[in-house]
Write a protein that binds this DNA or RNA. Structure first.
Lengths: 361, 361
DNA sequence: CGATAAACTGCAAACGATTGCAGAAACGCT
DNA sequence: AGCGTTTCTGCAATCGTTTGCAGTTTATCG
């Protein structure tokens, strides 16, 4: 079917081994024959068979990226970045979707290693630490975005504590003192870390932590909606809400729209992680950018490094943090009263909510 | 490193060939030895090496999906569907991103075939017909969503004419007679087809086509915004806008928000292709669903069929159309005056928009 | 019980590359 | 010219499987 090395060798009247050496550039050939072979190979349209090569060398030129889904905008840009970087180096990216499901993750991992991937970047569920640990002996692995505590794998993380701190401080600087937080479950690292950043900013500003303002739950729109309702129904509702996840943001936007709460006039809104439509939304939504692009790039850097370094891993650093940054758009507003809100601004909120009620019914 | 067939054979005190036959189930072994081998293989944790196997069989158990990007929600669900289906059959999906760029597409295709993929589902740019045609001799290929006219490849398409027709008719049934259309460039199939569906619905309803209501451009938010402005600035602006692409929708939403145009009261909005946040938007956005899920499933079906059928392709049907369907949400509204709009509905629109204005300002 | 067919098993050659080893050619030097 | 180096080249083994062929066992039946 396709042209093999043997064909090339025959056409050039040399042995297969010479042909191989000439084409792979394993120096041991004279310049003359080398060039001749390269020319002939091109003429014949020879393309090395990665499978055969892989069998001998144990490499596949395949690098896998295992993420939870493709719905998450962060994962999208990560996938695109990884793909671009790898392709430039002659690797093919194997993009796999694990669905944040340990079983599926485990299956996929097995298949990938079967296929003798040369490297793996994985967003771990955290439930397959043992397996990952084992696999890491055979394949360079870098964890991305999430840590798997059961392993000591090199891990590239977003700086969630800092991001949450940055966001919260921004709101504080705008004069907000009652800041609602809708955050991820507290059994996830990101959930805990984002909460801690929020708390730290509050503490630094000398604002007492109020647990009625803090709601944790799954990263889905429904959670966002219900948490948002609870916050708004408080006797002293917050003047700003910090939503630590973009999925939840959907729910929040829905609820505020339903209740005709104007953003940022009645309520400031700050989100974590960007979505393409955030800047087209009206008002454009301010965010804390977790730096997906940087994360992906760093992960690739680290992976390549390990792939080069062959077996001799373990050089100290096991955890990298990529800084978050604040992107100010139009959904947060300076608050009139820098002093702690009394049962302030009852006019706007009450009038609005009644209007909403009528609009809905 | 890992357990090979030889190890299993040795442990079972049979030859490698017997082991191979027992494990692959190529019938020619006694039940007893077969079961024994299976057991031993499991005990030893034997996993066949797909590379070695591939070398011999010429197959890789890899199926590639080549799409333009991951930003497009349709591609996301397609990728997820394809991945799920293939995995269930023991294939690994190779997801590749071509960026709608012919050069990149071409490179990727070459790499993929080098890797001896067993099948390919591709959203073609349309510029690499010759190459695709050649590759199709070696690998089963199915085109998805777009046709490459230079080939006679089996193609699974959305029924854009019907989708556009359905959407337009829906708006007409709601009493709209001036319906703006923001559609893709007319040098793309989908652009032309969506326009044709729109035109047909108009014709059937006896509504004269008005070219000032039709705007074509790239599928990006900016286009949506500028086209939307042009439509709104018309002396007789449309009472409904049909946006034939979700990216453009972003621009439209922005502009309507900027101008305090209430949807659906002042303007009905209907979009093509779903986005996860459409139903969380307020108002939830009605759409024509192009059936990404069905498209992907059908493409997989066809691909599997060809992969089974080995070489003997060409059995007539080369083009499949997957029906679109209308999903009514809250962004389209019955128009008061079934008669052609004069500068009608000043009451509702003005009252609403002023309300909106106050709420926002 | 012996012959014949059926069922099973093993040997060895592939698949298409890479690579250690040893022989051959080219070169420099005296 | 002869010798020692250096540089090239080819042979053959190897990676882990699959598979045609031939040989061996077991079953079947008269």
């Amino acid at each position: 079917m396709s042209v093999t090395l043997k064909d090339v060798a025959q056409a050039a009247r040399v042995s297969v081994s010479t042909a191989s050496r000439a084409l792979t550039g394993t120096g041991l050939t004279s310049d003359r024959t080398q060039q001749r072979l390269v020319r002939i190979a091109r003429e014949l349209g020879y393309r090395p068979n990665p499978i055969a090569r892989g069998l001998k060398t144990g490499q596949s030129r395949l690098v896998a990226l295992l993420v939870h889904n493709l719905t998450n905008a962060s994962f999208q840009v990560m996938a695109e970045v990884v793909q671009a970087r790898l392709k430039a180096l002659g690797y093919q990216m194997l993009l796999c979707i694990g669905g944040d499901d340990p079983q599926q993750e485990s299956d996929t991992l097995t298949t990938l290693v079967d296929h003798r991937i040369d490297g793996l970047i994985v967003v771990p569920t955290g439930k397959n630490g043992a397996q990952l640990k084992t696999l890491a002996k055979d394949v360079p692995i870098v964890c991305l975005v999430r840590r798997d505590d059961a392993t000591d794998l090199e891990t590239v993380l977003a700086d969630d504590p800092q991001g949450a701190y940055l966001g919260t401080r921004h709101l504080i600087e705008l004069g907000h003192t009652r800041i609602g937080l809708i955050v991820g479950r507290q059994d996830t690292t990101s959930g805990r870390e984002r909460l801690s950043g929020y708390v730290r900013a509050l503490r630094e500003a000398g604002i007492a932590r109020d647990d009625t303002l803090i709601h944790a739950g799954h990263y889905v729109p429904e959670t966002g909606a219900s948490c948002c309702r609870k916050l708004l129904d408080l006797s002293r509702p917050p003047s700003a809400i910090f939503v630590a996840n973009h999925e939840a943001t959907l729910g929040v936007l829905r609820v505020t729209a339903e209740r005709n709460i104007a953003i940022p006039d009645d309520l400031s809104l700050l989100c974590y992680e960007d979505m393409p439509w955030f800047e087209w939304h009206r008002p454009a939504i301010s965010i804390v950018d977790n730096g997906a692009r940087d994360l992906a790039n760093l992960a690739v850097d680290r992976l390549l490094h390990r792939m080069d370094a062959k077996g001799n891993g373990s050089e100290g650093v096991r955890e990298y943090r990529v800084g978050a940054r604040l992107i100010k758009r139009d959904s947060c507003r300076q608050v009139d009263t820098p002093a702690p809100a009394r049962s302030a601004k009852p006019k706007s909120s009450s009038s609005k909510s009644s209007a909403a009620k009528s609009a809905k019914a």
